[in-house]
């Protein structure tokens, strides 16, 4: 992977570059390598929707190393938005910035802001704990907690100190049904969650995430550790959840992105290169780079 930014860049305003035409040569990579400004090829369709989350001029540094460059990206409510791009392009980093998990990493600095339904995420005085309760997250590797299935699902309620049995059971059932797991585990809710299969564990994690009725659901390569059948189940599930939940998913799997998402964003070396409706990105991308990537000619 070429390292474009050997020399640390000062946190200035995002660099802008005139958009390149679809037929032009892949200039974006060269421009990035040279550290020049460029502008995201933003399809107008994404701007017309109602946005649950809007990312504005967002930049991030790990210590001296800049990882995200001037990302401006509105996320549409009730739809699935996929983040694609080669390894290390910053898509997971961006995802983890939405619920501020990157705060836990030493030496992280950011600039710019994000807004969740109009509330700033990075403004001073934001209660991170409250914020995270409004955002659900599912990780690359299933990470059920070392406790029973039931306790896993109602974890977010437990930490709020909710003890009413009826409410807990109601939420548990609803979330497990929502995650399509209820029929498989309804008779063994008291069993350890660690005894479930990998696919079941991942759906349990989804159930856990939706138990708190989040405004956005973040999925960080949720199928990368699963076999094709379990992957299929998760994709079905995503389709069922869409509409009720707004989903932002990071994936390496082009087919998955094409199959499941409504919008796709292509990222490269910390930049958002092109962002638009999925069928446009995969069929008529505006940039040569995007076309190369989605057709597998790049990488």
């Amino acid at each position: 992977m070429p390292t474009a930014t050997k020399a640390p860049m000062p946190p200035t305003s995002p660099e802008r570059l005139p958009p390149t035409g679809r037929d032009s040569a892949p200039r974006v990579y060269d421009a990035v390598a040279r550290g020049e400004r460029f502008t995201t090829a933003m399809h107008e369709a994404v701007l017309d929707e109602r946005h649950v989350l809007s990312i504005r001029d967002f930049e991030l540094w790990y210590g001296e190393k800049k990882a995200l460059y001037g990302i401006t990206m509105p996320i549409t409510a009730g739809k699935i938005t996929a983040l694609i791009g080669p390894s290390g392009c910053g898509k997971s980093t961006l995802l983890r910035c939405v619920n501020r998990l990157n705060d836990l990493v030493d030496g992280v600095r950011i600039a710019g802001d994000m807004q969740l339904n109009g509330d700033s995420i990075y403004a001073k005085g934001v209660d991170v704990i409250e914020l995270r309760k409004r955002i659900g997250m599912v990780f690359q590797k299933p990470n059920p907690f070392p406790m029973s299935i039931f306790e896993n699902v109602v974890y977010s309620l437990r930490i709020d100190g909710i003890r009413e049995k009826d409410l807990l059971h109601e939420v548990c059932e609803k979330s497990l049904k929502g995650a399509g797991l209820w029929d498989e585990v309804k008779d063994r809710l008291k069993d350890s969650a660690l005894n479930l299969s990998g696919g079941q564990q991942q759906r349990l994690c989804i159930a856990r995430a939706i138990a708190a009725e989040p405004e956005v659901l973040l999925l960080d390569e949720p199928c990368s550790a699963l076999d094709p059948i379990a992957t299929g189940r998760i994709e079905e599930l995503m389709n069922e959840l869409k509409g009720h939940y707004s989903i932002l998913i990071v994936t390496h799997n082009m087919q998955q992105a094409a199959r499941t998402s409504d919008y796709t964003a292509f990222m490269y070396l910390g930049r958002l290169v092109e962002y638009g409706p999925t069928n446009e990105i995969f069929r008529v991308p505006r940039l040569k780079e995007t076309e190369d990537y989605v057709t597998g000619r790049f990488g």
Partner: peptide
């Protein structure tokens, strides 16, 4: 595993 801690933080735990 760190993923467990992150999962917990992700649920809004302190």
């Amino acid at each position: 595993p760190n993923s467990m801690r992150e999962g917990s933080y992700g649920c809004g735990a302190t």
